[in-house]
Every structure is written in C-alpha cells, then in structure tokens.
Write a protein that binds this DNA or RNA. Structure first.
Lengths: 251, 251
DNA sequence: CAGGAATTTGCACGAATATGCGCATATTTT
DNA sequence: AAAATATGCGCATATTCGTGCAAATTCCTG
C-alpha cells in the first residue's frame, strides 16, 4: 500500500467517522502504530487534521450541534430550499439527498402537498415528522457517521427499487470541466445510483461550491437537469454552465 | 473515545442544558467520576467553564433554552433508558425499537462502547449521530407517520437479514393475560418479526403501561426475556408477572 | 548498471499521558 | 451534629508518544 493511498484513506475515515484512532488504523491496515503516528503527525503539519492523543479529529469538527443547527442555515440555503420545494408538484415522488441544504427543502415543503419523499438520510426523514401530507420512505443501510446517510449494498438495492420524478442532489463541489463531485467515494457511488433512478436531477449550490473541484466525481454537467443557485451570485461564475447549456434557476 | 472528544461533548452539554453533573457524565460516558472531575478541573483552568460542587456551569450564563428542556423525558424514562443502556456489552448487536423510552437508551449509551445499533426509527438513528463508537444501521421502509418507524415489506425483509443479541421492545400496554401489545396492527407485525430475529427481548415499561390492554398483541409474556420497570413501582402490580416467571429488573 | 542518497518501515526504550482506586478532607444535606 | 456525597491527591497501571537506529526498499545519478 502506498503512503499517499494510506493518507487518503485516513482522510476518508476521518470524514466518514468523524475520528480516527491510531491503534485501530494500524490494526486494520496491518502496519505498525509508528507508521500511522508518523502519517498523522505529517498530516497534522499539513493542516489536514487535528492530532490528539490516541488518534486524530477533523480540523473543523461538526459544528451544527443542537443549539446552533437551525441557526447555521444561511439565508442563501433557506432561499434555495424554498425555491426547490416549490418546484415539486402534487403526486410526485421526490428523492432528497442528505445535507443541510436539502434539509431546507424538507422544511419548506408546502404543508398541503401530497407527495412521496424518499431519502437515505434519517435526519431529513426527521424533518418531515410533522408534515401532514407527505408520505416518507427512508432508505436503510449502514450510516456514514459524518454525513448521516445510509450507504452500502443494502442501500444500493433499496434505491434500485425506487423510481423518482425528481432528485435533489447535494454536492460539495461544482466545476465547469469536472462536473459535480463529492469528497467520498462511497457517497459518490450512492448519489450516482440515485440519479440513475430518477427522471430529473437538480443540484442546489451556494456560491462557495462553484468552481471547486473535489476528488470523487458524481456526475458530468450535462446529466443533470438544472442548477439552482441563490440570486445575487456573480454572473461570470455562471457563464461556463450557461455555455454548457445547463438550465440555471435563480432562487 | 478520545479525550478531546469528551471535552467537546462536555462543552456541548453545557451549552445545551446550562449545566453538567459529574456523576451523570461519568455514567453516560462509561468512565469513572475521577476522569470527569479531572476534565472539569482542567477545563476550568482553561476558562472554558465554571467548576461547581457536583458538576460545572457555563461561564456566560446564557438564557436557559426552555424549548429543548421541555422536550426531555420523564425521570422514570431516563432511568429506564440508563439501566437498559448499561445492560449492553461491547461488541453486541442491539435492535432499538422506536419510541421515547428507547430514545433514552440511545442517549445513555456509554460513549466508549463499541456496539452495533440497529433501528427502524430515523429518530433513534438521529440520537446516535454524535456517538463516537456506535455503528448505526437503519432499517428502511415506508414511515409510519404516527410513530416514525419504518414498516412494510421492505422493512420486514431488511429485518430478516439481521441477527441481534438484544432487542429493546417498545410497547403501549402490558397485561398479565394478554401479554405485550401495541395499538397498530402493522407495527405489531414488525415488532413481532424483530423479536424473532433477536436472541433476547426486553421490554421497558413505565407504571402506566402495566395492566393495560391494547387491541393488537405482539408477544405473550413468556416469550420475552425480561421486563424493566422503574423502581418505586407498586409490588402488587408486578406480582402477576413474577408469577409468570418473567424476570423483572428495577431501574 | 553500479553505488550512494533518500525514503519508508518497524523496533526498542524512556518520556508523557490517561485512567482508576484508595484515602483523607471538604462540602452539602438531613 | 451526623450522614451522605463530592473532592483532591498520590500512586499504580496501562496506553500512547517521540526519538534514535537499523534494515529494506526505492530513487537518483554518473
């Protein structure tokens, strides 16, 4: 196993679990703890993670805790969520990806709308607890700690049995050439699979996600049906996507 | 569990509850009070909190968040949850039914315990979002709105693929003759199915559930491994169950 | 292709850290 | 005042850490 592979894997586990433990890593990779410790030390020097006794933590540990969770949603995300929610027609089946932006869609879902919402995020499902008319279907599987979405073979199989009219895809980065991407390979695979099972896929993106590239690509630009961005964004950032004939909606 | 995670968790609880109690922290984290006291002492030295007899307080006394404080369960449910959580051994696979009482089990799960938690309730899964060591598997399916648990054929099939060591069953009623029951037929079927896939089934019940009968029976008395009730309950209410040789645990 | 430099990895060992327990003391409650 | 509870300290134990060092591998250079 190459050193860089090992470091990438450490980063992935950090993302997935929100922590890594030196001993466990050494066991899993069949290497000595010294090697792992050296890796962690170096990665800490590169500001890729925070070294702590016994292992390491992500640099910016998950901020959205109980008290702040609702407050962190920016105005832009709320506008995106409200806009997307109003795209949904009665009777449709809508797949909601995980993430804080998609949580806003769930919150803004009109209360008299009879729809079927499918999601692989228990958090999103929880948002719909008190919705009077939505039918909620949750995709099961092993939960990724950090992003709280179901993954794995069971989730893939369950998704395959769904035909959604709309899919609101959450991404971490959008790039004119590389398309839509997310940081984790497994998550990317799931998202790609969902997109294949949905008639139309829309991406909600705040400004900071534009022109960024992330290691794992999900979809090329042309395979999504539209991009929803907050109004007030720089037009020149959007130009490459307009050139690619990607419909853009201003929320 | 890493030390820095523990300290972060203490700070989060301080913000959320406006206080922390050393004893309760030690309990929930599965550590000795000494360790907690050391943490609190160190954090007080770093001016992160104010140390007081029995626990600690936030430095800046913020407004107490009544909206979240009111959502807390009764003392009896908390005790039941803590008791059940401490029955769980490292490495076990535990199926948690839905409901507020089982949510307390999730909340009190010692933070250093490596376990696999399976649940068909997105709400319960959400409770475990910040648990450092638990593997969480969620059972998917159509959500039953009232109780927010997955039901239907998909859920039944997913459950059949699980082998749990323990199943903590939530019920709406217990009756010496009619056994354990719940109000809804579909939910009853799911619960019965889970019990069949688990080695041991325990029921947590507060006083008001005893001697009540509900339309849909889940299980007869003798097919569960034990009943966990809050201490202080009337002994005569328990007598019929003791006669039925059902092990009773006082939390 | 030969040989030296650089990198990687594991091991040993002393230092640092983390944790639990006993016990004497301090504080609160009854 | 007595009992119950909480606290701090010292100590023992178990991990974990960092460093120096040697062996193995890879890279580089002439």
């Amino acid at each position: 196993m190459l050193t860089s592979q090992r470091k990438a894997l450490i980063l992935e586990r950090l993302r997935r679990d929100g922590q890594v433990i030196a001993k466990a890593l050494a066991d899993d990779l069949g290497l000595s703890e010294d090697t792992i410790r050296r890796d962690l030390r170096e990665m800490a020097a590169e500001k890729l993670l925070k070294r702590v006794h016994g292992g390491a933590l992500p640099l910016s540990p998950e901020l959205p805790d109980f008290s702040t969770r609702q407050a962190v949603s920016s105005d832009a995300k709320r506008r995106l969520g409200a806009y997307a929610a109003n795209m949904i027609r009665p009777g449709q089946t809508v797949f909601l990806d995980g993430g804080t932006t998609n949580a806003e869609i769930a919150r803004h879902l009109p209360k008299n709308l009879a729809v079927t919402i499918v999601t692989h995020s228990p958090t999103i499902a929880g948002e719909l607890e008190h919705h009077p008319t939505a039918e909620v279907i949750v995709i099961g599987g092993k939960l990724y700690k950090h992003s709280m979405v179901a993954t794995g073979a069971a989730a893939m199989a369950a998704i395959a049995s769904i035909r959604a009219d709309l899919f609101f895809l959450g991404v971490t980065a959008i790039h004119p050439a590389r398309g839509f991407s997310t940081g984790d390979f497994e998550e990317a695979a799931i998202k790609r699979h969902i997109a294949q099972c949905a008639a139309e896929t829309y991406v909600l993106a705040t400004a900071e996600k534009l022109d960024a590239a992330s290691p794992c690509q999900i979809l090329p630009i042309k395979s999504v049906s539209g991009l929803i961005v907050p109004s007030g964004i720089f037009e020149e950032s959007l130009a490459p996507y307009r050139d690619a004939e990607l419909p853009i909606f201003l929320a």
